[in-house]
Structures are given as C-alpha cells and as structure tokens.
Design a binder for these strands. Structure first.
Lengths: 122, 122
DNA sequence: CCGGATCCTCTGCGATACTG
DNA sequence: CAGTATCGCAGAGGATCCGG
C-alpha cells in the first residue's frame, strides 16, 4: 500500500518524530547534559502525559536506539532511568536544523513561553 | 495541555512531517528538478492515495510554504500544478540529514526497492 | 480532470484504576 | 515507583460519489 517500505530509514524517523510527546521527551532528556532521568521525573516535567503514552514512547525510542534505559531492582522503590544515547544526542542536531530552517523561512518565528518551552533553548 | 505552544516552529514541522504521505509527496515533487506537477500526476505516483488525503496534504504544505500551486482555469480541463518552493527545496536537506543520521547510527541501512522508493536517490 | 462532500472505520490518545 | 489493563472518544484516514 505504502510505496516506501515499512523499514525505510527516513520513514521510520518520520513515524516516531511525528508522534505526540516524542519530541518533548527527547528534549527533556537532552536538558541538563543528558543525565539519567527517572520515569517519574520525565512524567512530572511533561505535565499531562499519561503513564501509558510515556511508557510507549520510551519503549519506541529505546527500540530506535535514541535512548537507553537502566533499572535498579535491588532495592525498593524500583528505579528506572533513561538518557539519550550518542545517536540520540546526535539526533538533537536534526531538531536544531529544523529550528534553523524555520527561522530562515518563516517570516516571524513563533516564540514560546520561555519558562516552559524546551526548544527555545537552542 | 501541550507544554509546547501550538505554533512552536519545531512542533509544527513535526506535525506535518509525521503525517502519512507528506514525506512521499515532498519527495515526489522533488524528483525531476522540482518542475510543476499535476495533481493527477502526483496521485498516480503515489498509487493508493485518495484525493481527499492528497488534497489535504497539499493544502497543508502550501500553508506551510513548502510548496506552491498554480491553476489554469482558462481552458478545460482545469489544471492544478504544484512544485516545491525554495523553502521546500531547502527542507529536502533536512530529510537528507535524517537519512545521513540513519546511515550513521543504524547497523544496517534498510534499502527499499530501487524502482519505487524515492528516498534512495539521495 | 480536479478535488470537495459524505460516510464509515480504525487507531492514537487520554482517563482511570490497578499490580509487582 | 514504574509501569500495565480496560474503556471510551475524537480525529485521522480511506472508499465512494458527485459537481464545477
């Protein structure tokens, strides 16, 4: 049905990039030097994301090798932590390119509230 | 609800980039030196796209200034033609960057059938 | 020939509750 | 704490018809 194959590299990127919350999650993990971040930390930062969606997105990004996960099950409470991989950090450059493209071609760049918007850091 | 504003530049791009067919349409218009292409030509190239979706995507891309449209109403049948704007051509570079990123970080690049896949030209 | 209008299906997303 | 399970809805996408 689709001419481009399911596993076509560009299409795969478009497929996760376009999903709701994905971009915000990446930028959230990028903030603060890409340190390990807990599930609940990300959740809190992305105020209205539900655990179901967050979980799904994190799994997808892990599968695509943009983030990595580590779990500490030895003591309670369990900690699951996530951070960008090298590929993930490199992918941030693509997002920066998109930002640059927007700045170049759009008459006015739409600015977000400085307090919350995570892409205005670029 | 979303922290990032509706009109945030990066989010806007992610929103149209992730939609089905968008990428294929851009690449289709990019093929052949970005000449004017008819609605029906694009439709034929993207075998199973329905006119409703194609029309919606073209409108969105026109609104985002990635493509431009010209119409000839003087004679029958009416011709509507589309091609990439300068911004649109520049946007192709972002797609190329995504391709490069994939090549760099994925163990194997998934190749599409040469005959049909439009991103393998890069 | 272009593409809008209608109707219908399907899935992405969200709210809530629940478990190891 | 870190998720999974269930349910429900709205909106995206598809098939088809039709009119300019």
């Amino acid at each position: 049905m689709y001419i481009m194959k399911e596993n076509c590299s560009i299409r795969k990127v478009a497929n996760f990039l376009g999903k709701r919350w994905t971009l915000l999650i990446l930028l959230e993990l990028y903030k603060g030097k890409s340190k390990w971040k807990r599930f609940s930390q990300v959740k809190k930062s992305l105020n209205n994301i539900t655990p179901k969606i967050l979980s799904a997105r994190l799994k997808e990004l892990e599968r695509e090798k943009l983030i990595e996960k580590r779990v500490n099950v030895e003591r309670f409470p369990i900690k699951s932590e996530y951070k960008l991989t090298e590929a993930g950090k490199d992918f941030i450059n693509i997002i920066k390119n998109i930002k640059k493209w927007s700045l170049k071609w759009k008459e006015k760049n739409e600015k977000c509230d400085e307090r919350d918007c995570k892409d205005c850091e670029f």
